[in-house]
Measured scan of single mutants.
Amino acid sequence: MQRVNMIMAESPGLITICLLGYLLSAECTVFLDHENANKILNRPKRYNSGKLEEFVQGNLERECMEEKCSFEEAREVFENTERTTEFWKQYVDGDQCESNPCLNGGSCKDDINSYECWCPFGFEGKNCELDVTCNIKNGRCEQFCKNSADNKVVCSCTEGYRLAENQKSCEPAVPFPCGRVSVSQTSKLTRAETVFPDVDYVNSTEAETILDNITQSTQSFNDFTRVVGGEDAKPGQFPWQVVLNGKVDAFCGGSIVNEKWIVTAAHCVETGVKITVVAGEHNIEETEHTEQKRNVIRIIPHHNYNAAINKYNHDIALLELDEPLVLNSYVTPICIADKEYTNIFLKFGSGYVSGWGRVFHKGRSALVLQYLRVPLVDRATCLRSTKFTIYNNMFCAGFHEGGRDSCQGDSGGPHVTEVEGTSFLTGIISWGEECAMKGKYGIYTKVSRYVNWIKEKTKLT
């Protein structure tokens, strides 16, 4: 034993070699072989497995989906700052455009905790909710729209109204504003409101030439003092309507412009014939205590009207009353817009006519005020429907199939267009061939041609 100890002390290297040989010859039971080890760690190889990531292109799944990435790591994937920024906006807080917040056709661009709407022409605001041009839906104005110097929408209202708090709607500024039905039992019968379409306001006024200088022999019209197929109006439903009495009662109609003036057809009036105007009328054979009678003290036909040349060209006249009318729910003026808007309103496509005229061709006159909704007829169809001249200051309205029309005794009465609950004068009943005849239409004086003249002559002093 002493000898062994001496050998170990003198030859430590020998001992180490012996131990190493023993270990190498022993069977290893701690580690699995290569094949079995792979069965336990069965993990798919990654895209760049075996390579240094710093030297390969980034992978979106590896960089940002398996674990949260930084902007720089995302930049490695896209290799483009702009594309990385677009991805980053949604990656950080989701897609803010998912709810489609942009209105009126706006395009949404996502941002971090926010979004941006790219608005089409005519709109602005956070969600493109603000109209900035009158060309689109009248700028959301209830009545009139004008573009300011910086191309912003400025709404306005006709006389007797003021802008509401929203700067879009119009509200009454006087007790009985024009064009409004205020009798409670008839307010439910107000005709369907007309909503502004998209309009090209630059070209809204037709490029028409008034044929002022045409000389033409007097034409022989049949029954051209021209509501057939209409309905009984309720008291106060058309408070701007008046009836004219002269040699015979209810020979023509008219509309209240203001307390002192009536507008009617020029062919209705004769110099030297006494005319009485009755406002607030409903049943011409009954006294309903809503009527107001006034005498006409002055007749002003349009300066281009000449019955000797043509009885229905420039067929418009103004009547001055001896005493002002007292405005109330049964006696209310009709609204008159400017030339541009009167023309736009007419193009809405349908209007209402009213009167006490004959209820059928050569038949009896109506006792109760009649009204009828009539569609506008395109000019080409209008011209083809008659052998008589249709001037540019006239328009056609009615039904091709016949059966409904204005008729004798309705002449001078109103053709009105309702705009968001307020009625505007767009025409004056003038003439036609018979009444409600198939293929024939009622012919009306186009008020847009005469609004400046009306307003100039009827100013209240």
Rank of each mutant, 00 (worst) to 15 (best):
E270A: 11
A265K: 01
M437F: 13
C155R: 01
V277C: 04
D322Q: 06
G409T: 07
S49H: 08
V199M: 13
G254M: 00
V92F: 09
R379Y: 10
D223H: 10
R358K: 15
N343H: 07
S350W: 15
G432K: 10
R162C: 05
S204M: 15
L372K: 13
F395C: 02
E320H: 03
A308F: 09
C108Q: 02
R180F: 05
V273R: 11
P324M: 05
H415K: 00
T426G: 00
N310I: 03
I40M: 08
W240R: 00
R162E: 11
E124N: 10
F221G: 07
F399H: 10
N245W: 08
K39H: 11
C97Q: 02
P44W: 08
G442C: 15
Y305C: 01
T290G: 06
T276L: 05
I275H: 05
D378M: 04
G439L: 04
A337R: 01
L103M: 14
W118S: 14
S11C: 13
D249F: 05
T445C: 04
C145Q: 03
S255Y: 01
A26F: 10
P44Q: 10
K137I: 06
N113P: 07
I40Q: 08
E116K: 14
V277E: 00
E76C: 01
C335K: 00
G58D: 10
V269L: 12
D410Y: 10
R62Y: 00
F388I: 15
R404Q: 07
E129Q: 12
A250K: 07
K39S: 10
E72F: 04
D131C: 10
Q90W: 08
S11K: 15
N203A: 09
L19V: 08
G412N: 05
W118H: 14
P120C: 04
C108G: 02
V4D: 12
K347H: 09
H289R: 07
I443H: 05
D232F: 09
N304G: 10
A279R: 00
E171Q: 11
Q2T: 07
R62G: 02
R364Y: 08
L103N: 13
C108M: 02
N258E: 02
S169P: 01
E193I: 14
C382L: 03
W118M: 14
V296C: 03
T445P: 00
K457H: 15
C145L: 02
V242S: 01
Y47Q: 04
L367R: 14
M437Y: 13
F71L: 06
T194D: 11
R358A: 09
E231W: 10
N310S: 15
A233E: 05
V227W: 15
E129H: 09
T290Y: 11
E82F: 04
Q216E: 11
K362A: 14
L24W: 13
N127F: 11
F87W: 14
K109A: 10
V56C: 03
T209M: 14
